[in-house]
Design a protein around this nucleic acid. Structure first.
Length: 819
DNA sequence: CCATATCGGGG
DNA sequence: GTGTACGATATGG
């Protein structure tokens, strides 16, 4: 029979005959959950002989290989000579086909030892990845399959054994998404998996709301479902997922919290989290402290991980990635307003009213998770389609992995053999390599008016394409080659050369990405905004911008120090050239990596634009200097202990009154709200109103209010995490001291607990005066003035020239009366 | 200057 | 599992 479907999850299993078969789980066009089995794909790798002369004898030797491993026999099924390239050079490789994916590592080790073998390649690409690459299948994109119905032990509507399968369209899956979230008993601030039960599980989707809990609530909302205990709650949650049949089950930090917690509580209650479509156990792949929780048959997404990756470094800079902040920024809607530390108390006291609120809160979290996923879907899907790997992997991949995934798929057209993933040792060797990065033109601290900012459009990608920078074009021959600017290595000046006789695969692939992106941007310009096209161009932008970093990433297969060095060398050269030219007409205020900030002074905007045109006439075709914006005012500040202006620490206001702040994120979650608010307001007054004196008066007023204890205690709360067991602390910080006192009063405080505290008035050390917010009646205003307010605004006022008068090093305290 | 420590998300 | 392996930033020697 014929069927069209969207593959979502791909893996392989070994069938009764001992053969590895690929399974593609997905959704058919008529809405069924399906599993397609493809048993027509063979595992293989490549062996590269030292010279062509020995190929015949090597093949004979390889074909004799037999390895016993546990119960199975691994062997070479066939070999075949394949003319390939390796980093641009022609080589003969032998394709070695083996009887099982697990035979690859075993056989590979033996092949490596055969004399006359130079290297073994592509033995480290997983079977299912290899399948997707070779079959040119992207998950989530429509596939046609011809096959026979098959009887298999899987919780799907249809299993097909494929005779043929191919990707047939561009059309994408519209997935069934189920957001979920758990609430747990939290007498202590951090719940303990062994002791504290799960109290609620919430689910949300289009036309679907459900909260499961095990305390009966009278006159509760319809969506609340009651069960008798935690065990039943877990079973009911499993049943809910089974019946809903989502394509994506989505949580927020569910890799780090919800799933590990569910697993632990399921074990405690002696029940199985039986949601995988083949009834197998859920895989928790440890990666440092965090695990990646992978389901079989459908996708588990931790949307937090994708959002964090995709937004950092982008336009919107979030100060925190907690669900409330992210949802407010992206959905204009925050979490339900409850005091989560009160949940345990409400549960113990059977406080019906409060528990109903917590149910609502639980549902809201699931809803926000669901909505964020909907919002991110265009980007998530574009990456999945471009990179061609399952959506659950894309959701967790770094940009370096994006580049490598993209190269792996697109390198095939060049017949390039894929370099091996570097060994642990070579990674650590490579990470010793250091090289010069971007150029920074240091600003003099101060307030400037009337600025123009230029930047190079996609500077690093266009440098790579314009100068043919690629591991395959690197040459020692300076004839017919691009010559880099001088590069200083160990006090010696060197240059690299990249041939101009043929184009490297990285420049070709990258140029294709850039031109595709430009085409999409033109369509958007012509036809107006379109979220899908916008996601597509943004994905291509991120991908293109990641190539340079990838070349210098020690864990990369195509790592090349020479390439990475060359990219930054060219970049420094171009930016410095523009700065030198700009200096003849304007005052240059600042420059960093790919941007130049100039003061217009008596010159006009037109003069700035003419200058831009002039520069662009001299650049290679793909490179371009663009106007980023004109700014009314800008403040450049210096970091402490630096006299010159700091890198990337400035704030600008444009003609529309919107403020752009860079590098002020020293104010993080572990500072008081007071410090954050003061800094924000000061920047506002300086930039928007051009009123430094008013800002000073404002800070003076805040200090006065602090001293008169007129500021809300909530704004004084500082939080900090305990990273280890209390006993193992040598350095007793304020948060450690608070925790110690709590323990003395009988509390249990495991590692990982967040301690909230306020510094109280009195004599002695800071740590002895740190107390829980509920135990604090007042606060030490001098501490907050000197350690929170002043540090938050100090550098801003210094840049404005108030240094000597108002802020004298650490003795600021005595001077602050005048402040 | 480079090596080590901390932190994030979740309740 | 055709293994594994966070990444960015702050501090401290």
């Amino acid at each position: 029979m014929e069927m069209q479907f969207y593959p979502i999850d791909v893996d392989y299993v070994t069938n009764k005959a001992g053969k590895a078969v690929i399974r593609l789980f997905g959704r058919s066009t008529d809405g069924k959950r399906v599993c397609v089995i493809d048993s027509n794909f063979e595992p293989y790798f490549y062996a590269v002989p030292e010279s062509k002369t020995k190929v015949a004898s090597i093949r004979k030797e390889m074909e004799k290989i037999r390895v016993k491993h546990d119960e199975s026999l691994f062997y070479v099924s066939s070999t075949e000579v394949s003319e390939r390239k390796y980093l641009g050079k022609d080589i003969s490789a032998i394709k070695v086909v083996v009887n099982h994916p697990k035979a690859v590592p075993a056989v590979k080790d033996i092949v490596k030892k055969i004399s006359g073998i130079a290297m073994v390649a592509e033995a480290d690409i997983t079977f299912e990845k290899r399948y997707l690459i070779d079959k040119k299948i992207s998950t989530l994109v429509l596939c046609s399959v011809n096959g026979e119905e098959f009887d298999a032990n899987a919780d799907v509507d249809l299993v097909l054994e494929a005779k043929s399968i191919e990707q047939t369209g561009e059309e994408m899956l519209s997935p069934k998404i189920l957001g979920f979230d758990i609430e747990v008993y939290n007498k202590l601030r951090i719940p303990r998996e062994e002791k504290d039960p799960i109290l609620m599980v919430g689910f949300y989707s289009d036309n679907f709301k459900k909260v499961i809990t095990w305390k009966k609530l009278d006159k509760a909302e319809k969506y609340i479902h009651f069960v008798k205990d935690e065990k039943e709650l877990i079973l009911e949650a499993v049943k809910t997922i089974k019946e809903f049949k989502p394509d994506y089950l989505v949580g927020y930090f569910s890799d780090g919290f919800d799933f590990p917690y569910l697993r632990s509580r399921a074990k405690k209650n002696n029940v199985e989290l039986n949601i995988n479509l083949d009834f197998s156990k859920i895989s928790f792949r440890k990666r440092g402290e965090l695990s990646s929780v992978q389901l079989t048959g459908f996708a588990h997404l931790d949307i937090y991980r994708f959002i964090k990756r995709i937004t950092s470094g982008g336009e919107i800079q979030l100060e925190s990635y907690d669900l409330d902040t992210v949802a407010k920024e992206m959905l204009n809607e925050g979490k339900a307003d409850v005091e989560i530390p009160e949940l345990a108390g409400a549960w113990d006291d059977n406080n019906q009213k409060k528990l109903k609120e917590f149910c609502k809160y639980n549902l809201k979290d699931a809803e926000l998770t669901f909505r964020l996923t909907e919002k991110m879907l265009p980007n998530l899907h574009e990456f999945t389609k471009i990179i061609g790997q399952p959506v659950q992997d894309i959701c967790r991949m770094t940009f370096g992995q994006f580049v490598e995934g993209y190269l792996l798929r697109n390198i095939q057209q060049f017949r390039e053999l894929v370099p091996n993933r570097p060994s642990y040792n070579s990674i650590s060797d490579r990470s010793m390599d250091s090289y010069e990065g971007a150029f920074v033109y240091q600003p003099s601290p101060g307030l400037y008016e009337n600025l123009a900012v230029f930047d190079f459009r996609s500077l690093y990608p266009t440098i790579i394409t314009s100068h043919n920078i690629c591991p395959s074009t690197l040459t020692l021959d300076s004839k017919n080659a691009y010559e880099t600017p001088e590069i200083e290595v160990n006090k010696r000046k060197i240059k690299h050369y990249f041939t101009s006789k043929h184009e490297g695969f990285i420049p070709i692939i990258l140029r294709d990405i850039l031109t595709r992106r430009n085409r999409i941007k033109e369509i958007i310009k012509k036809n107006g905004k379109d979220p899908i096209l916008d996601a597509r161009q943004y994905s291509l932008k991120i991908l293109a911008n990641s190539f340079y970093g990838y070349l210098g990433f020690s864990g990369g297969r195509w790592y090349s120090l020479e390439c990475a060095q060359s990219v930054t060398a060219y970049a420094r050269n171009y930016v410095q050239q523009v700065i030198e030219k700009a200096k003849k007409e304007f005052e240059v205020v600042y420059g960093d990596t790919d941007s130049i900030f100039i003061r217009l002074g008596k010159k006009t905007k037109k003069d700035a634009l003419d200058f831009l045109k002039e520069i662009n006439r001299g650049l290679p075709s793909l490179m371009e200097l663009e106007l980023e914006n004109f700014y009314v005012r800008g403040i450049f500040v210096s970091k402490k202990s630096e006299t010159k202006g700091a890198k990337k620490k400035y704030a600008l206001i444009d003609e529309k009154g919107s403020i752009k702040v860079r590098g002020f994120e020293t104010i993080r979650g572990d500072w008081s709200i007071l410090a954050k608010e003061v800094q924000e307001k000061v920047l506002d007054m300086v930039l928007k109103e051009n009123a430094p004196q008013k800002a000073i008066n404002f800070v003076k007023e805040i200090i006065k209010q602090a001293r008169q204890k007129k500021i809300d205690m909530k704004k004084m709360i500082i939080r900090r995490n305990l990273t280890k067991e209390i006993k193992s602390y040598e350095q007793i910080g304020p948060h450690v001291a608070v925790a110690k006192k709590m323990i003395e009063q009988g509390a249990e405080i495991p590692a990982g607990t967040t301690i909230y505290y306020i510094i109280n008035e009195g004599k002695g050390m800071i740590r002895d005066r740190a107390k829980l917010p509920e135990e604090s009646s007042s606060y030490d205003s001098e501490y907050y003035v000197n350690n929170q307010v002043i540090p938050a605004v100090k550098s801003i006022f210094e840049a404005l020239g108030y240094k000597e008068t108002y802020l004298k090093e650490d003795h600021a305290q005595s001077k602050l009366g005048e402040f």
